[in-house]
Computed example of a mutant assay.
Amino acid sequence: MNAAVNPAAPHHLPSFITAPGGTDYLMVIAAIILIGAVLGIGLLFLRLHTLPERMAHKTHKIQFEVVAVLGLLALFTHIHAFWVAGLLLALIDLPDIPGMFGRMAGSLEKIAGIAPGTGGDAASDAETAVPGPDGIAPYAGASVEEKNHA
């Protein structure tokens, strides 16, 4: 077998043209760039897709779980409205209603002299009765009508 150059070919070939059986360096470089571009664009898309969840997590939002579920729904259903809703929820500060009521209950327990965390327990009427002018709780155990008539 003769490896001579075809006489119709130009005398100087570009460097990306390889001999038969040689390594095609241009194809190897193009494959590396293609794989890098696909991975880079995929990571960029993933970072953009998880933006609402990361925003809600960073600011310790109450609605973090809802934002995370909306992000997963948007990822698996390809319905972009879920992603937009998650982004809006991540940007909005919702008031901490349960925490606010818990703080109010704790303050009322402190004012009433009840041990913290026991204000919701069932207490007997004698413990919660209001003492009369003589210091005795006259209405302990009395019905509402009896208390109103006394």
Score class of each variant (00 low, 15 high):
Asn2Ala: 15
Asn2Gly: 13
Ala3Asp: 08
Ala3Gln: 14
Ala4Asp: 15
Ala4Met: 09
Val5Asp: 03
Asn6Glu: 14
Asn6Trp: 14
Pro7Asn: 06
Ala8Asn: 15
Ala9Val: 12
His11Lys: 14
Ser15Gln: 10
Ile17Asp: 00
Gly21Tyr: 00
Gly22Asn: 05
Thr23Gly: 06
Thr23Arg: 12
Leu26Met: 08
Met27Thr: 10
Met27Pro: 02
Val28Glu: 11
Ala30Pro: 02
Ala31Cys: 07
Ile33Phe: 01
Ile33Gly: 13
Leu34Trp: 00
Leu34Arg: 09
Ile35Gln: 00
Ile35Lys: 01
Ala37Gly: 02
Ala37Asp: 00
Val38Ile: 15
Gly40Phe: 02
Ile41Asp: 05
Gly42Asn: 10
Leu43Pro: 01
Leu43Phe: 04
Leu46His: 06
Leu46Lys: 07
His49Arg: 00
His49Lys: 01
Pro52His: 05
Met55Gly: 07
His57Glu: 15
His57Gly: 12
His57Trp: 05
His57Val: 04
Thr59Val: 09
His60Phe: 08
Lys61Ala: 13
Lys61Met: 07
Gln63Arg: 12
Ala68Leu: 14
Val69Asp: 14
Gly71Tyr: 02
Gly71Gln: 02
Leu72Cys: 07
Leu73Lys: 06
Ala74Trp: 00
Leu75Lys: 03
Phe76Tyr: 14
Ile79Thr: 03
His80Ile: 06
Trp83Ile: 00
Val84Ile: 10
Val84Asn: 01
Gly86Leu: 02
Leu87Val: 02
Leu88Glu: 03
Leu89Phe: 03
Leu89Arg: 02
Leu89Cys: 03
Ala90Tyr: 01
Asp96Tyr: 12
Asp96His: 14
Ile97Thr: 07
Pro98Phe: 05
Gly99Phe: 11
Gly99Asp: 12
Gly99Glu: 09
Arg103Ser: 07
Arg103Ile: 08
Arg103Leu: 03
Met104Glu: 03
Ala105Gln: 03
Gly106Phe: 04
Gly106Asp: 12
Ser107Ile: 06
Glu109His: 01
Ile111Met: 11
Ile111Gly: 04
Ala112Ile: 09
Ile114Glu: 10
Ala115His: 01
Ala122Asp: 13
Ser124Trp: 08
Ser124His: 14
Asp125Val: 06
Asp125Lys: 10
Asp125Ala: 14
Asp125Gln: 11
Asp125Gly: 13
Ala126Ser: 08
Ala126Ile: 09
Glu127Pro: 08
Thr128Gln: 06
Ala129Gly: 07
Ala129Thr: 04
Ala129Cys: 12
Pro131Met: 00
Pro131Arg: 01
Gly132Ile: 02
Gly132Thr: 05
Pro138Asp: 03
Pro138Lys: 12
Ala140Cys: 06
Ala142Tyr: 09
Ala142Ile: 09
Ser143Met: 12
Val144Glu: 13
Val144Tyr: 06
Val144Ala: 15
Glu145His: 13
Glu146Trp: 13
Lys147Pro: 04
Asn148Val: 09
His149Val: 15
